[in-house]
Amino acid sequence: MIEVENLTKSFGDVQVLKGITTSFEKGKTNLIIGQSGSGKTVFMKCLLGLMVPDNGTISYDGRMFSKLTVKEKRNLRQDMGMVFQGSALFDSMTVEENVMFPMDMFTHQSRSEMEDRVNIVLKRVNLIDANKKYPAEISGGMQKRVAIARAIVMNPKYLFCDEPNSGLDPKTAILIDNLIQEITKEFDIITVINSHDMNSVMEIGEKIIFLQHGIKEWEGTKNEIFKTNNEAVTNFVYSSELFKKVRQMYIEERD
């Protein structure tokens, strides 16, 4: 379990995170949602240790991140997988080399063992015949799959995804969402996803945290988000015409 206690972070006079307390459970896809500038990315970067919070604590299965030594932090990070918004694949490496990279850095496996593992993982994300291609030669959706493959190749305990389906068409976005959820269940890992895509919320939001102006405004499941009376959440969720109509239908059906 990842436990976050009273997390605050400021940049100069601007307080971006204002005392966030929450937890993320094993085997669940946890979504952090909120408008742009609500503090989602800063929150995730604090979780990953890429930013140091001003106050508060983050514990990974009882290990308090701030109290770990540099070596312990590095070891903990080997249990983390991260899918970046822009995939963050290494341009100079092929798909195979990208996925192989963490193994190459941290294991003593032979080349053939690593290749076997890469093939298994690429097959798991439904990516075949792309091993020798460079990131620039494949589509955005395929790049996301490679990023997911790279994130899970070391069997991580914690998977973080920063807007994994941004820039993808709705069909591919759903495929990526479902893939992440399947992997979460299959490997029984803690998955934390940053998103402002309501389709993702409805597809895979087992636990949803809504951030607004750096405050945790609401927390619940995808079923609860439709019923909530929290004005900030409803304004965010029903900002599109499509979801307004869905809500209308839901209310009519209920009444």
Partner: peptide, 15 residues
Amino acid sequence: TMRVTEQIDALEVMG
């Protein structure tokens, strides 16, 4: 370019 495309962050997250 690695910095702006988050490749350096990716390295850090990997440990």
